[in-house]
């Protein structure tokens, strides 16, 4: 196996594992579409990175962190209707991103391309994903509790609002690295599909989290393999495989 393929496997696998694990927690509170919506915010950042020749990951991250903070603040510090505002902001970001992104780069920005990953991006994606996984493992009990019942979390002496901010920030990082793999439009699939599949068949929280990560890796490996040999784009291929596994899992619902 050549070194480049190995690098793609590792990066895609780690990105999908962290996305799957994050997704399993996000799905506890039906936050599945947050990833989808958030990924749009990244697009202007990606575009600016391409235009001004700095790493698009950095541009995406800055916009994402800013975007998540705004959502959190609107939800907890104002009385504005969150979903409406989020809808407006995100489509606005997508429009700005679409106008700014040079034409020849727009497909990569929207659908991702991990097949030409640079050394720097490989390390950025791998290390960020590992840090995300470690953070999620450290805080998973607290996140779980505050996601399934803010009331019980309060009673247990937690600060649900701060935990939510931390969770959203981790979310922002996961989206920033995920965009390299699946692009801004398909980023949500990394969060939603493996976790939804795992939820269909898991009997416990441990199983659910582990399986979400593993299913992410499985989808990534299959997607990268097929795209490598047949020349498809890896992102959409990942989505196709993961989607197929999801539909199979429906027949094995516990």
């Amino acid at each position: 196996m050549d070194a480049n393929l190995l690098k793609i496997f590792i990066a895609a696998g780690l990105i999908a594992a962290s996305g799957g694990m994050l997704g399993s927690l996000a799905l506890l509170r039906r936050m599945a579409l947050v990833g989808d919506a958030l990924s749009h915010v990244a697009l202007p950042g990606v575009a600016l990175g391409i235009l001004f020749h700095f790493n698009p990951f950095l541009g995406a991250l800055i916009f994402l962190v800013f975007g998540t903070f705004v959502i959190w603040a609107v939800e907890h510090k104002t009385k504005l209707p969150v979903d409406t505002l989020v809808g407006v902001m995100f489509t606005l970001a997508l429009a700005v991103g679409a106008l700014l992104t040079p034409k020849e780069d727009i497909l990569d920005a929207l659908f991702g391309d991990i097949s030409n990953i640079s050394s720097l991006d490989f390390w950025l994606a791998s290390i960020t994903s590992i840090v995300i996984i470690i953070l999620l493992l450290m805080f998973y009990k607290k996140f779980t509790l505050s996601l399934i019942s803010p009331d019980l979390a309060l009673a247990a002496g937690q600060k649900p609002h701060m935990l939510e901010l931390l969770f959203l920030m981790i979310f922002a990082f996961a989206v920033a690295v995920g965009i390299k793999f699946t692009g801004a439009l398909l980023m949500g699939s990394l969060i939603i599909i493996p976790a939804a599949t795992s939820r269909n068949i898991s009997k416990s929280m441990n199983q659910y989290l582990t399986l979400s990560a593993l299913l992410g890796v499985l989808g990534a490996v299959l997607g990268v393999l097929v795209s490598y040999f047949y020349g498809f784009s890896p992102g959409p291929t990942f989505v196709l495989f993961s989607g197929a596994i999801f539909f199979i899992s429906i027949f094995f619902r516990r």
Partner: peptide
């Protein structure tokens, strides 16, 4: 509490 019934926990 509005725990969803199909939570895998």
């Amino acid at each position: 509490i509005d725990l969803e019934r199909d939570l895998p926990i």
